[in-house]
């Protein structure tokens, strides 16, 4: 359960990222957030796991307060929230397995972490997570040798290795070609359904949002301007979110 009440985020340079946002996301829901770049999508996601501190308002994840949490508490909260990035953010010069286990480092004592001495259990966790995204055969390959889609699946496996209750994805398919984007979205959807992990995904394309979002949240200028099911997100809703009508450019090509 993610609860935001009257959350405002003001960056040091004065830009308002989130403007008095109140939201409640129940367990297991698959939520897609859409909006123009700069509308506050990224800020919303980064505020949920505390990477961006809220200026005012309160925010809790599974009953733990994120706002006002100490460094240590914040680390504990983050360890239960998986995160996926547009640029994958893998460490390219090491193996896929090491990358996946990185997700579980919060439980590994520092001396084992420094020497890279993983237990059989940790490796088992790595394999299982890779199997879940169907890329286990690459476990000992260097991450730099994978394609973009494969890298993003490794990044999902890394997030899974955290054993998360919440999964956040910041434009996970923006740097992928359309067919790969579909596959990655399907992976996220399957994980959400099989494991019941609450999932919040930022997307640029509205059609992907409609196809995958159990619930679609539209943002503009840091405010929530639309909140409904994928079916509700009609052209009128689009105009409210994007401030103009739908054109062919707004639809992910390769999907009719």
């Amino acid at each position: 359960m993610i609860e935001l009440s009257n959350v405002t985020v003001r960056y040091p340079n004065g830009v308002v990222g989130l403007d008095d946002v109140s939201l409640s996301i129940p367990d297991g829901q698959f939520v897609v957030v859409v909006g123009l770049s700069g509308a506050g999508k990224s800020t919303l996601i980064r505020t949920i796991n505390g990477l961006v501190p809220a200026t005012s308002g309160t925010l809790s994840v599974d009953g733990s307060e994120v706002t006002g949490a100490s460094k240590k508490q914040l680390r504990a909260i983050r360890s239960r929230i998986g995160m996926i990035f547009q640029s994958f953010n893998l460490v390219k010069r090491t193996t896929v397995m090491n990358n996946v286990i990185m997700g579980a480092l919060h439980d590994v004592p520092w001396y084992r972490s420094v020497l890279g001495l993983w237990t059989a259990q940790e490796k088992e966790l790595g394999y299982t997570c890779l199997e879940r995204v169907g890329i286990v055969e690459k476990a000992w390959t260097r991450a730099s040798q994978l394609s973009g889609g494969q890298q993003q699946r490794v990044a999902i496996a890394r997030a899974l290795a955290q054993n998360p209750t919440v999964m956040l994805a910041d434009e996970p398919v923006a740097s992928l070609d359309p067919p790969t984007a579909q596959m990655v979205m399907k992976d996220l959807q399957r994980i959400n359904r099989e494991l019941g992990i609450t999932t919040v995904v930022n997307l640029h394309f509205l059609d992907l949002a409609r196809a995958y979002g159990e619930r679609v949240i539209g943002m503009r200028d840091g405010k929530v301007v639309f909140d409904g099911t994928g079916a509700d997100a009609d052209d009128a809703a689009f105009e409210r979110i994007y401030g103009r009508s739908l054109t062919a450019d707004d639809v992910l090509p390769g999907r009719s």
Binding site: E124, Y127, T128, R132, A139, T165, T198
Partner: peptide, 17 residues
């Protein structure tokens, strides 16, 4: 919300490790 079954092998046809 159940993450306990993460350790279970997923049903997708697993490739050889």
């Amino acid at each position: 919300m159940s993450t306990a079954n993460l350790t279970q092998r997923p049903d997708v046809t697993p490739a050889k490790r």
